[in-house]
């Protein structure tokens, strides 16, 4: 579903990602773990076409993001670590805006907005300006807007930050549903317990380089993910 091949990206003299290669297959929840500044966000941004890599290639469903960005973006959704949404819109206007971009028919968008807004309990706030939303509500709205076109690939940067326990639980269920229906999830997290329970595969990145990658059992062996991570961090 998502293939990252030898990806490198530098900011001035600082190398953020250095020759990273990963393969996220259909049906997989793939966790991306690393300390602050390890290169997780840069990788995720490059995968969804927000950042242009210095070298390497990224393909979504076999389509190159650099050559056919629009085709790739139609298949995926991105959730940033800090959901800076259009504060000058109401929640429902923002969902309409995203739906228009994906050309989602009225009845389908109505059905999906109702379904997810009820699930995340923000239906009553959809007519309010986004500027009045709390961080968690913005995160919920960003998740709904990402799910509205039923993406095959969902890229998420620290998706559980700011979400209440119930919303986190619901999101985990949705992530599993996407994978069960043939999609894939690639997400970064600091919460190792979440990664341990949720992910089919994990990759640990340090200083822009891949340190370890594989199924949960392959990565942690007999130890816990935390001890593996701390050992790798040195």
């Amino acid at each position: 579903m998502l293939k990252i091949d030898n990806l490198s990206k530098s900011y001035g003299t600082k190398t953020a990602v250095d020759g990273l290669s990963l393969h996220i297959r259909k049906g997989e929840i793939f966790g991306f773990i690393g300390h602050n500044g390890a290169g997780k966000t840069t990788t995720l941004k490059a995968c969804c076409g927000i950042l242009k890599p210095d070298s390497g290639s990224i393909t979504v469903d076999g389509i190159s993001i650099s050559e056919h960005p629009i085709e790739c973006k139609k298949r995926m959704a991105y959730l940033p670590d800090n959901p800076d949404l259009y504060n000058f819109m109401t929640g429902i206007r923002f969902l309409n805006f995203v739906s228009d971009i994906y050309a989602i028919p009225a009845d389908i968008r109505r059905e999906r907005i109702d379904k997810y807004a009820e699930l995340f309990e923000i239906k009553a706030d959809l007519a309010q300006p986004i500027s009045s939303y709390s961080h968690g509500m913005k995160q919920k709205l960003a998740i709904i807007s990402a799910l509205i076109h039923e993406p095959k690939l969902f890229l998420m940067d620290e998706p559980f930050v700011g979400l209440d326990p119930k919303a986190s639980h619901i999101l985990k269920g949705i992530m599993r549903d996407i994978c069960n229906s043939g999609g894939a999830i690639f997400f970064s997290t600091h919460v190792l317990e979440v990664a341990e329970k949720l992910c089919d595969k994990v990759a640990i990145i340090k200083g822009g380089r891949l340190m370890k990658c594989g199924t949960m059992d392959e990565v942690r062996g007999d130890a816990s993910l935390e001890s593996v991570f701390l050992e790798l961090e040195g």
Binding site: Y86, M89, G91, I92, R93, N96, F97, D100, I101, A103, P105, A106, R109, R110, I113, A117, K123, A124, D125, L126, A127, Q128
Partner: peptide, 21 residues
Amino acid sequence: KALYSEKDIHLGSSSSALFKK
């Protein structure tokens, strides 16, 4: 508090969505 209703669902083209934004 204004509440969201089904009337708030508006269908438009991608270019009109960008213009409205």
